[in-house]
Write a protein that binds this DNA or RNA. Structure first.
Length: 468
RNA sequence: CGGGACGUGGCGCAGCCUGGUAGCGCACCGGCUUUGGGUGCCGGGGGUCGCCGGUUCGAAUCCGGCCGUCCCGACCA
């Protein structure tokens, strides 16, 4: 295994994170503070996330559209809480085409406002509802402390925006996205056992009446918000005059939702599954699931490697042939850093016995596999690896989550992991007190693990942690 | 924006204290050698020492200002 190639997690976790990003060729810092260049290998991971999410979003009934990057500054001001929440981090264009603009254009930090304006035009009748839209876009938020993938000035994301005839319908849709699109994607594709919960008023999205979240635990015990789904009540509908006529010919304001997931998920993936040898990419999201490598050249080895790769590709496995002309050890270390789940090592010795060596990045270890059974073996390995990653992440979360009964106990637990504590023990005051030590209430959950359906659930538990 | 650390070839660093015109490891290029876990040897290319100003015969080195990066917070997907 690779030694001394990257900083061990235990020595310095943030440094480890940056080393992985560099050595696995995921991203680079951009030239302007806080910006990010996503390199091909990192982008390939994002593209697969996008494709999987896009499929699920479409199944949920939303259609893709595209709205402009520039938003009139006045739009942002129409929703008081929204503008208050986003003002500090806006990038504003004041000059263009060589002259001062009459109205400054804000580079979108999120698109509720423009989309609200247009939805208001399109929605006239209850028959136009629900209106379910999604867009894939870049957004800009001038964050104070950027970190590659986790918080960059510009990031890529998906933002869904919907309008409904009733509060109930909007609520159910936000919940559906949260549970059936986001959580299932994270569990089934990213192998991340996210906790689903409801944000406290303090942590809620600016302008929302309710925010649902998916929280993941990273390798250092900190939490990462992987995606959120908001009920916006009638706040934006009111601000943009989005009204419609009901069946009874009465004018009513629509109820809206918005929901988003971003390139931050790539950072979450790294910190959830990575280890001291580098990245470990869950098989279903891996752009390269199997790397076929020539371990030592010889009679017929290259042809065998090529045909093994082709067989895997034909069987629907995302395989790639590594025919680079560098030492085997180096290529093996590269594959480990990049977290390719399975390596098939082909050499004269194995071929003489009609077999190849299969090296597993996730479970670890190597085994000799007869050529005839390779495709089945690999397919099986990939399925097992997904489950193993999920189980490992879940075990860590459970090990590092303490059931606390006092705020001090919870704060103590949050230095190495998470704590759950009855929300009535914490309350708004306790939440503020924890915040002084950089500990936040990540979300509220019910004792049975379900998501609270109201803000004043007397039995709700607060999940508290440090977070990214 | 506060507190701390740091800016020297692509990456990681030494040199700075005690000024004299830049060096090491890795990476890169060429050759031979090796390819079953970062091969070995030989040769080679690449840096206005973050920027601006000051002191000095002379500044990577001393002084001032600015900019940037990283870590810990505040803000946040």
């Amino acid at each position: 295994m690779a030694k001394n190639v990257i900083t061990p997690q235990g020595d310095d976790f943030p440094r480890w994170y940056q080393d992985v990003i560099q050595k696995a060729e995921l991203a680079d810092n951009g030239p302007v503070r806080g910006t990010m260049v996503i390199r091909p290998y990192g982008y390939a991971i994002w593209e697969r996330m996008q494709a999987a999410m896009d499929r699920r979003i479409k199944v949920a009934g939303a259609k893709n559209a595209y709205f402009p990057l520039f938003i009139p500054e006045s739009y942002l001001r129409r929703e008081a809480e929204h503008v208050e929440g986003f003002s500090p981090e806006l990038a504003v264009v004041t000059h263009a085409g060589g002259k001062r603009l009459e109205e400054p254009a804000v580079v979108r930090p999120t698109s509720e406002t423009v989309i609200g304006e247009y939805m208001a035009k399109w929605v006239q009748s209850y028959r136009d509802l629900p209106l379910l839209l999604n867009q894939w876009a870049n957004v800009v938020r001038w964050e104070l402390r950027p970190r590659l993938f986790l918080r960059t000035s510009e990031f890529l994301w998906q933002e869904g925006h919907t309008a409904h005839a009733t509060e109930e319908d909007a609520r159910l849709y936000a919940k559906h996205i949260h549970e059936e699109v986001y959580a299932r994607f994270m569990r089934e594709e990213l192998a991340m056992p996210v906790v689903l919960g409801r944000k406290t008023a303090r942590e809620r999205f600016a302008g929302a009446t309710n925010t649902l979240t998916c929280e993941g635990m990273m390798g250092d015990g900190k939490a990462l918000q992987m995606g959120t789904s908001h009920e916006l009540g009638q706040n934006f509908a009111r601000a943009f005059d989005m009204n419609f006529l009901t069946e009874a010919n009465e004018r009513e304001l629509a109820w809206t939702t918005s929901w988003g997931t971003s390139t931050r998920m790539v950072g979450g993936l790294i910190m959830c599954h990575g280890d001291d040898a580098g990245l470990r990419v869950p098989p279903r999201i891996a752009a390269v699931q199997v790397l076929v490598m020539i371990v030592k050249d010889g009679e017929g080895v290259a042809q065998a490697a090529r045909s093994i790769t082709d067989d895997l590709l034909k069987a629907g496995v995302r395989a790639e042939l590594d025919d680079r002309d560098s030492a085997f050890g180096r290529r093996a270390v590269d594959a480990e850093l990049k977290g390719v789940p399975v390596r098939v090592e082909v050499g004269p010795r194995d071929l003489a016995e009609g077999s190849v060596t299969v090296a597993r990045r996730i479970a670890g270890g190597k085994s000799s596999v007869p050529l005839g059974g390779l495709v089945d073996h690999v397919t099986q390995a990939l399925a097992t690896d997904h489950d193993a990653l999920y189980a490992e992440a879940l075990a860590r979360r459970e090990d590092r989550t303490v059931a606390a009964t006092t705020i001090d106990e919870a704060a103590e637990a949050a230095t190495t992991g998470w704590a759950t504590i009855p929300w009535r023990t914490v309350g708004i005051d306790g939440e503020a007190r924890l915040a002084e030590s950089a500990i936040t209430v990540r979300c509220l959950v019910m004792p049975d693990g379900s998501v609270p359906t109201a803000h004043e659930e007397p039995d709700a538990l607060a999940v508290v942690a440090r977070s990214y």
